[in-house]
Amino acid sequence: MEIRRLDPDEPVRDQGLVARRLMPWPLVNAPFDGSWCVVRPGAESGTHGHREHEVWVAVAGVAEIVTADGVVPFAAGDVVHFRPYEEHQVVNRSEEDFQFFAAWWDLEMAERFAARDEE
């Protein structure tokens, strides 16, 4: 077993958020990539869409997800899935950090996983 610790001094700016890339992880053959993300009070990500599927798992705090369908509250314990190319944004209007884990994947990543798994 190996534990990868989140180092709060190591995050970098990504899509307007403070993020720490956790996947890929050389020890783990996973069919997805992922990041720990923090949205500071008053901050928001850029609106974006991409070819990958994406899932966010809300871990702490409260924020809003903005899509073409509107604005939806997103709080600790919630999970959301974005389809490929679905534009989305997260906005933190609260006075506390909002934290979530993001994982994304596509067919190419799944094929690489399968090839590595056969080795």
Rank of each mutant, 00 (worst) to 15 (best):
R112K: 13
G34C: 14
A63E: 03
G46F: 04
L27E: 09
L6H: 14
R13Y: 03
C37S: 11
R116W: 03
H88S: 11
L6E: 08
D97M: 06
A30I: 03
P24Q: 02
P41T: 08
D97P: 06
A110E: 13
L6G: 06
L17D: 07
R51T: 01
L17N: 13
P73K: 02
C37P: 02
H48G: 08
F82S: 09
P11N: 09
R93I: 10
D106I: 02
N92Q: 08
H48I: 10
G77C: 00
H50W: 04
H53E: 15
W36R: 04
A63W: 01
D14R: 15
G49N: 06
E111W: 14
W25R: 01
A115T: 12
W25S: 05
R21W: 10
V80T: 05
P73S: 05
E96Y: 03
F74C: 02
W25F: 11
Y85F: 15
A68G: 10
S94L: 00
A115V: 13
P11C: 11
L17K: 01
F101Y: 11
S45I: 09
R51C: 01
P73I: 03
P84H: 10
D97H: 05
R112T: 12
L107Y: 05
E119I: 02
N92E: 09
V57Y: 03
D117T: 07
E118F: 08
T67V: 06
E87W: 14
D69W: 00
A68W: 01
H50C: 06
F82Y: 07
E111R: 15
G34Q: 06
A60Y: 06
R116L: 14
L107K: 07
H48E: 14
D9K: 12
P84I: 11
W56I: 06
A43G: 09
W36V: 05
R40E: 15
Q15D: 12
A75H: 08
F74S: 01
R4T: 09
A30E: 02
A75I: 03
A115F: 09
A68D: 13
V55T: 13
R93D: 13
E95Y: 04
F32M: 08
A75F: 02
Q99T: 06
E108S: 03
L107R: 10
R21T: 11
A102N: 00
R51Q: 06
A76S: 12
